[in-house]
Computed example of a mutant assay.
Amino acid sequence: MTLAEEFRSRNFTYTDSYVYHPNSISALILIFIEIPLLLRICPTSPAFDAFIRRFETNYMRAAIYFVMSAIQWISVAAARTSLIAAAIVLLIASAFYALAGVKGQGFVGSKTLGGQGVAQMIV
């Protein structure tokens, strides 16, 4: 069955097993952290927006990436899955954000993904 046939039949066999997985929440949070434009165009609650805006420094991003990596490692310890790749990548990203914080580099947001100046581009 092709992907187009699955959409027509509304039988999503490839994705439904992972959509309800607890680790998919990590992916959603990371998408909103890394693409702030989504906070402007997606209907989210003020509490969720405030939570996401807490991760605007290198140290806070290092912390959230480390926590997400720990969640993945615990998941991998419970059952060997391909999530080990996510655990490794999140741990490396956490290390790089921490290194940038230690070196005193300021966090630089992208205008393309929702940094400074996006409000003017939308309007």
Rank of each mutant, 00 (worst) to 15 (best):
I71D: 04
L39T: 13
A87R: 00
S17N: 04
F12H: 10
R61G: 05
S9H: 06
L91Q: 13
S17R: 04
I84H: 04
N23L: 05
A47G: 14
A47V: 07
I41L: 14
G117E: 02
Q105S: 14
S82N: 12
I52F: 05
A27E: 07
C42Y: 11
A100H: 05
R54D: 09
W73S: 09
F12P: 00
L28P: 01
L83Y: 06
T44W: 03
I71P: 00
E56F: 10
A85G: 03
S9W: 02
Y18H: 07
P36M: 01
T57E: 03
G117R: 05
M68R: 13
M121D: 14
Q116W: 03
L91K: 04
V123K: 09
A77S: 15
L38P: 01
Y59F: 13
S17H: 07
E56D: 12
F51G: 10
A93K: 03
L39K: 11
V76L: 15
G109F: 01
Y18E: 02
W73Y: 15
R8L: 12
T112W: 03
I52Y: 05
I122V: 04
M68L: 12
L83N: 11
L113P: 02
Q116V: 11
D16K: 02
T13D: 10
A98C: 13
L39Q: 14
T57N: 05
T44V: 15
A27K: 11
N23R: 03
I25T: 15
Q72T: 06
F55Y: 13
G114N: 01
E6T: 05
T13H: 07
K103I: 08
R61S: 07
R61D: 11
R80I: 12
T13P: 02
I35W: 04
A50R: 11
Y97H: 14
R53E: 13
H21T: 01
R53A: 07
R61F: 12
F55C: 07
R53S: 10
T81R: 01
